[in-house]
C-alpha cells in the first residue's frame, strides 16, 4: 500500500458512494447532484492516476456540461422537487437490476482483477505525459479525431432534427389547435418549458399561444 493507493481508495470510495446514492436516492434532483459528485471525484481519481488532462476534461465536459444538461432536462420535464417514490421501477425489477448489476460487477472483477493483479504504475516517471498525448492525438489518432468532430456535428444536427421533425409531424397530424394533448396546453404553466414552447411556436404558426 503506497500513499497513492491510500489516496485512490479514499477518492474511489467517494466516487462509489456518490454513484450508489445517485442511483438510489428518491430525490430526482439529488440524483443528478450525486452524479455530479461522483463524476467530480472520478476526475480526482484520474488525477491520482496521473492523467491530469483526462481529469480536467472530465471536469470540463462531464461536470461542466453533461450534468448541467441533465439538470436542464430534469427541469424541462417538470421533475418533482423532494422525495418521490414514483421514480423507481417496481420492486421485482429493481431486484432484477440489483442482481444484474452485481453480476456485472462480479464478471468484470473476475476478469479484471486477475489481469491487473500485481500490476503497478510508477507515476513518478509517467509513461504518458500531456505533450505525448497531444502528439498522439494529432499524429497517430488524427483521423479518428477528425471523425469525432464530424460525429459531434451530426449529433448536433440530429438532436435538432429529432425535435423539429417530430414537431412538424405533430403539426401535420393534428390540425385542431385545441387538441387536449397539444404540447402548448401541457406546458402553459411551466416556466422551464419556455424553450420547447418557443420551438413549437416557430414551427406551428397557426397554433401559437399568446404568452
Amino acid at each position: 500500500m503506497t500513499t497513492r493507493d491510500i489516496v485512490f481508495v479514499a477518492v474511489g470510495a467517494v466516487t462509489a458512494l456518490s454513484a450508489l446514492l445517485s442511483v438510489t436516492t428518491k430525490h430526482v434532483v439529488h440524483a443528478a447532484l450525486w452524479l455530479l459528485v461522483s463524476l467530480g471525484s472520478l476526475a480526482g481519481a484520474y488525477l491520482v492516476l496521473g492523467q491530469e488532462l483526462v481529469g480536467l476534461v472530465q471536469l470540463l465536459v462531464y461536470v461542466g456540461a453533461i450534468v448541467v444538461l441533465v439538470l436542464f432536462a430534469l427541469m424541462l420535464t417538470r421533475a418533482p422537487i423532494g422525495p418521490h417514490a414514483e421514480i423507481d421501477t417496481p420492486r421485482w425489477q429493481r431486484v432484477a437490476g440489483a442482481v444484474l448489476g452485481g453480476a456485472t460487477t462480479a464478471l468484470l472483477a473476475s476478469l479484471l482483477l486477475p489481469l491487473f493483479a500485481g500490476a503497478t504504475a510508477d507515476l513518478d516517471r509517467p509513461s504518458t505525459t500531456t505533450p505525448q498525448i497531444a502528439q498522439a492525438i494529432f499524429g497517430t489518432w488524427v483521423w479518428p479525431f477528425e471523425l469525432l468532430s464530424v460525429l459531434l456535428l451530426v449529433a448536433l444536427v440530429g438532436a435538432f432534427a429529432v425535435s423539429r421533425i417530430v414537431l412538424q409531424r405533430d403539426g401535420a397530424d393534428r390540425h385542431d389547435a385545441d387538441h387536449p394533448d397539444h404540447p402548448d396546453h401541457h406546458d402553459s404553466h411551466d416556466d422551464g418549458d419556455r424553450t420547447a414552447a418557443t420551438t413549437a411556436v416557430t414551427s406551428e404558426p397557426g397554433t401559437g399561444r399568446v404568452g
Binding site: T15, V23, L49, R94, G97, L100, G102, T104, T105, G118
Partner: peptide, 24 residues
C-alpha cells in the same frame, strides 16, 4: 507507485452500479 487492481475494481463497481441505475 499505485496498484492498478484498485482502479480496476472501482471500474467494475461503477459498471454494476450503472446497470442497477438503468434498471431501477
Amino acid at each position: 507507485m499505485i496498484h492498478l487492481s484498485l482502479p480496476a475494481a472501482l471500474a467494475a463497481l461503477l459498471a454494476g452500479l450503472g446497470v442497477y441505475g438503468v434498471l431501477a
